[in-house]
Nucleic acid binder design. Structure first.
Lengths: 143, 143
DNA sequence: CTTGACCTTGAAGTGGCTTCAAGGTCTTGA
DNA sequence: TCAAGACCTTGAAGCCACTTCAAGGTCAAG
């Protein structure tokens, strides 16, 4: 199967597939006489696995780790469980960050409930006088 | 004041300040005879405003829009309110996306409550067989 | 007069792609 | 038989908001 067919079966673009190959997520395909990449069902399975991980917002490093664990012949899945737990932790932290953020924004928005002149606008005043250090930095790969 | 002093007063790095200048968020500073950037209190105010906006995860485009509104002499703040409301919408959507995501991940995690052999690990099975199309794409600049 | 803190510019790296440019190959139908 | 158009190739650049690096210039203190 050529790259376009694989792409449509995995619902991603051919460029993404080439990118995954370059990144080492997907093993290099064999080549046809005309130098086109040639894929089998194993590639499709692996690509679907990767796309599912990405749909869950896992970073490439996390996916690489999962793939390596999967390829280890005699391992149990304890490390898989740990990796997923850690990723849930990432998502959870980011949700908490954004919830705090929304709180801040809502408070700011209430400073100016109606249209008024710029120099009395509570939002602009708030943005000018806030203490930026109050919020922490982002800790995860989820934005 | 030189760039380092401005940076420490605004709690950001000198590189960030130079970047904001290049991006047109911060007006270009005057230069000393030795070609060092020289800043006044107006720069500090504007920079603090920008950093506060960034602490609230506003994109540069949003901040640029706010600054332009602020500089408009006779405008009211209705557009400011709208912009903030829209940004709150971004944050809200992202929170909902991540909440869905966490749900998916938790369900996945429950597939494999304990250590077991790889080929029966429910997580890996789930990742291999999920339908990636089930989750939507990211719509905002918040990750 | 040297050390070291500060400043300058420009380029490259981050992540996970997408888009573009400039071609080569293959299939189909006139 | 040959031309159009769909598909493939590579490599580079763009996205965002920075950070880091390299290679130097400037300045105050000891």
């Amino acid at each position: 199967m050529k790259i376009g067919e694989l792409a449509s079966k995995a619902k991603c673009s051919a460029e993404t597939i080439r990118y995954y190959e370059k990144e080492g997520l997907l093993p290099a395909a064999e080549r046809s006489p005309s130098n086109y990449r040639s894929y089998g069902d194993g590639h499709l399975e692996r690509l679907r696995f990767i796309r599912n991980c990405r749909a869950l917002d896992m970073a490439h490093d996390e996916i690489r780790a999962l793939l390596a664990l999967m390829d280890a012949p005699d391992a149990g899945c304890g490390a898989v469980n740990d990796l997923v737990d850690e990723h849930i932790g990432h998502v959870d932290r980011r949700i908490r960050e954004l919830t705090d953020l929304k709180q801040q924004l809502s408070a700011l928005r209430q400073q100016c409930p109606s249209e008024r002149a710029l120099d009395t606008c509570g939002i602009l005043r708030g943005l000018a006088s806030m203490d930026a250090g109050a919020l922490g930095k982002r800790h995860t790969h989820l934005g």
